[in-house]
Simulated scan of single mutants.
Amino acid sequence: MGAGGVHPELADREESWPVVRSEDRHRDGWVVALREDWLQRPGHPGDEPFGRLVLEHPGAVVVVAVDDRERVFCLWQYRHPARRRFVELPAGILDVDGEDPLTTARRELVEEAGLEATEWTPIGTSYSSPGISAERHHYFLARGISEVDRGGFVAEHEEADMETGWVPAADLIAAVVDGRITDGHSMIALLMAQARGLLRV
């Protein structure tokens, strides 16, 4: 809170502290890497630089695909780091150079679900964990759903073991609220869609 009890502007803002040096902790041929930056607090040149780990990630998309019965397409997928099978929405990494988020969302819906949509509505964006990464997720709602061929896409590893199905939107929102669904980005996408009046529940 600012002087006199006045709040700063209620919005995130761009800001960048000086980086004295950087060192890779892990980097290979994949799109994600881990480095350590040493920062200098602005206006305090006498302070000792301090280290912060940074997970480099290109970002991702999440799709709330809704059919004409107000059901949402869901995936049940195993996630090894959490040792859980999560109820999720179709999603994917922005791993194609120059591809915008909507194009990625369209591609991922085809690849993961075998679906395409005629109506696309941006829901919003969020930073996954800004204490360690600049990764952003872009959320979309898709309607006008039809089945399509996956275009030669072959699921591997955890994706090859996914279960899929259509779930009434009202049931999904209830499962988010009572804690049965805990994948953060699926929760954000569904609650944002509901808050914007894009889901009829």
Rank of each mutant, 00 (worst) to 15 (best):
G2N: 10
A3K: 14
A3H: 08
A3E: 14
P8T: 05
A11Q: 15
E14Y: 06
E14G: 13
E15R: 15
V19W: 01
R21S: 12
S22T: 13
S22C: 10
H26A: 12
R27Q: 05
W30S: 13
A33K: 08
D37F: 02
D37E: 12
W38D: 06
Q40P: 09
P42Y: 11
E48G: 02
E48I: 11
R52T: 15
L53M: 08
L53I: 10
V54W: 00
E56P: 12
H57A: 14
G59D: 01
A65S: 00
D67K: 00
R69P: 04
E70F: 06
W76I: 09
Q77A: 11
R79K: 09
A82Q: 15
R83P: 07
R84E: 02
E88I: 12
P90L: 01
G92D: 06
G92S: 08
I93Q: 11
L94G: 13
V96E: 11
D97S: 07
G98D: 11
L102C: 10
R107Y: 01
G114L: 09
L115D: 07
E116D: 14
T121E: 10
I123R: 05
G124V: 06
T125Y: 00
P130I: 09
S133Q: 07
H137L: 14
L141D: 02
L141Y: 04
A142R: 03
A142E: 08
G144A: 04
G144R: 09
S146Q: 10
S146R: 14
V148I: 15
R150M: 02
G152H: 04
V154G: 15
V154W: 09
H157Q: 14
E158N: 01
D161W: 11
E163S: 07
E163L: 09
G165H: 02
W166A: 07
V167K: 04
P168E: 15
A169P: 07
D171T: 12
L172F: 00
I173M: 03
A174Y: 01
A175M: 15
V177R: 12
V177H: 02
D178P: 00
D178S: 13
G179C: 14
G179E: 01
R180P: 05
I181M: 09
S186M: 11
M187L: 09
A189H: 05
A189Y: 01
L191T: 15
M192D: 02
A193I: 03
A195C: 10
R196P: 00
L198W: 03
